[in-house]
Amino acid sequence: MTFSDHYFDIDRLDRLSRKETFVHRLDPRVKTIATMLFLITVISFPKYEVAALVPFFLFPVLMLTLGDIPAGFIAGKILLVSPFAILIGLFNPFLDTRIVAVVAGLPVSAGILSFLSILLKFVLTISAALLLIATTSFPGVCHALRQLGFPAIFVSQLLLLYRYLFVLLEEAMRIVRARDMRSSGARGAGVRVFVRLVGVLFLRAVDRAERIYHAMLSRGFQGDLPTLRPSRVTAVDLAFLAATIAFLAGFRFSQVAEGIGRSAQELLR
């Protein structure tokens, strides 16, 4: 029985999200909205679009560098992420073999174009999500969701989930370690043991929830998790949002990459 590396990533992202940079200081609501707009814009490109997607890398690159996030870490996560989209996209070149171009003597099929398009969209969307959380603390995102109209009860338990994620992961690691010390090799890695182990973890979790509830009651809990976080949207935030929208609209509706390419051709000529 092994313990997934994902745990350490949560911890790393959590640490990164508490840095103090220009990007980190932006209002979480503004960042969340900007990210969602970015995603919708990227996804809205048609199936075979490749070149026009490239300029959109500017957004994650700016977030990454201005937010002082290590590029290698994000790149590593993108590579390791469950490759469902790529797996499905990989079929395209084999199924859509209409040749639409010949590059360097090699025929390019429509399927390759649509696969490349999926690949670019995949990297863009994944990095945008990761960079949102790497530059915004998770509680910040939760408060943003609350202010954007998500139900209070959803946000409350989301905050609690995040808080106890770290506690329960520690607990799970302790249980797994204790198990591993007493089982050699494959023994102890099966479903049967797993069930017992998770059962124990479950009972402890329920007891903990009860204790937390008492602690909450002792401090006047009435069904809500109030916070003093008068996050006000500043002029800088609005400027950021406006710039993002302008950037997205500009790159969506004009062929930047192609224009530059054509100018380059002209120059060379």
Binding site: F138, P139, C142, L159, Y162, R163, Y164, R211, I212, L228
Partner: peptide, 11 residues
């Protein structure tokens, strides 16, 4: 850990 259920010390 049961007592500190909010996201930051201040909260």
């Amino acid at each position: 850990d049961d007592q500190l259920f909010m996201p930051t010390v201040f909260d």
